[in-house]
């Protein structure tokens, strides 16, 4: 746990805007990148990043040091991203036929050039996972966090995290298999 972050949160809880700015500078990139993995859209990820920091300012006093600051912040970001997705889903029209086989037009800027197309397919497939499997997968394989930290963020046991990851990978393999067949037939 970073002592500096804990000190900053203590000051933020008292309304210190300078501390808040310092906290934003240190963590905004992490928050934005995690949000982009869920939302696959710059504008939405920016909106969620704003929501997260507004929440940090409002809820800084609730941080009691039971978990690391990073874990706490990851948790706020995961919840904000999932809530944003739910709101968006409610307002969205019914999906187009075969939309699961269409590649998302979003290209994650952090992915290497040779992996761009495959990463787009993967991000599209991740969409079909349930909230918990999606979170476990994104935190483990995109954020590349240790399993224990993923478990801490999700407030579940290590065993439950591993089970979620196993099920997520199995589902993704099935879905990707279908996409592979569809693409082969339509070449």
């Amino acid at each position: 746990m970073s002592k500096q972050d804990v000190i900053l949160l203590g000051k933020i809880a008292k309304g210190d805007k300078v501390a808040f700015k310092a906290f934003y500078v240190t963590h905004s990139s992490m928050v934005y990148n995690l949000a982009i993995s869920y939302l696959k859209n710059d504008q939405d990820a920016e909106e969620v990043t704003q929501d997260v920091f507004v929440n940090v300012f409002k809820k800084a006093f609730t941080f009691k040091g039971a978990s690391a600051v990073n874990t706490w912040l990851y948790r706020i970001t995961v919840n904000a991203s999932l809530n944003f997705l739910k709101k968006k889903k409610r307002s969205r029209m019914s999906p187009l036929e075969n939309s699961q086989f269409q590649i998302s037009d979003f290209l994650n800027p952090g992915v290497t050039l040779e992996n761009k197309e495959k990463a787009s397919i993967l991000f599209k497939a991740i969409d079909s996972l349930g909230d918990n499997q999606k979170t476990a997968f994104i935190l483990s394989f995109i954020e590349e966090l240790p399993r224990q930290e993923v478990a801490d963020i999700m407030e579940i046991s290590l065993k439950a995290t591993e089970s979620l990851l196993q099920r997520a990978k199995t589902k993704l393999r099935v879905d990707l298999g279908k996409i592979y067949e569809y693409r082969r037939k339509n070449k």
Partner: peptide, 30 residues
């Protein structure tokens, strides 16, 4: 092999920078 490549395509993904400073907007919202 293709499925494995897709699943591993996000390995060592780089952090992207925010395109603009959101802090003034956050302050305004507060």
């Amino acid at each position: 092999r293709w499925i494995d490549e897709v699943l591993n395509s996000t390995q060592h993904i780089k952090r992207t920078k925010l395109k603009r400073d959101l802090f003034p907007i956050i302050e305004e919202r507060l």
